[in-house]
Amino acid sequence: MSESLLSVENLNAYYDKAHILQDVSFQVNPLERVAILGRNGMGKSTLFKSILGLEKIRREGDVYLNGHNVMNKETFETANLGVAYVPQGWQLFPSLSVDEHLQIAHTPHAGEHEWTPDSVYELFPEIKARKKVSGTKLSGGEQQMLAIARALVRNPWLILMDEPSEGISTFVIERVIEVCQHMAERNVSLLLVEQNLDLALRAAQKVYILVNGRIVYTTSTEDFKEDKESQIHYLGV
């Protein structure tokens, strides 16, 4: 066990007989922003689901969150250890309005940096104007903002973001990058899986490359930006 906020140690995950994640190990330290990059089908989303215990994935290894091994915990218990999830495709509730999404997710926090529905409305004024509208009636970009806002009002220590650039405009991608860059100021760390290299390199500080379910490369985003050869080799960009 380490002092990291999130420590994944020799994590293996299986869908039936398919061995998806193979001895994956990495850490996210407090106030750190980490991106996991990889092409489609490399196991990025499975990694999040395995960390959180979502779906019926058979998993082995250890995942420590805030010092607690969460491998034998129920998903809601893991979530209550201070982790929030921004899923791919946003997964909002059709019959709840924007405001109700935030109310339902709001978890009061004693610290000085508490996120409340009002403070996330300041961050995303676009959704404030549509408070009463059903979450799923918003545009793709607004839904992404709401999904991030919903994660923030849980006042987590760590946010897991699954492909936040999917299906949104360049303008919204810029907003997402901006929010990610300022997370540390509010004591929030970030773990991001992404295919959009530009977003990942600007939002994160550290990069792990996932290939066929294994972490094959680790570096800082600054170094990776310069390393065109590795970008082509691992990501084909």
Binding site: L52, L54, E55, E74, T75, F76, A79, N80, Y85, P87, Q91, F93, I104, A105, T107, R150, R154
Partner: peptide, 9 residues
């Protein structure tokens, strides 16, 4: 599952 991810039992 979405409610579970929001920390609800």
């Amino acid at each position: 599952s979405r409610m579970i991810m929001l920390g609800y039992r």
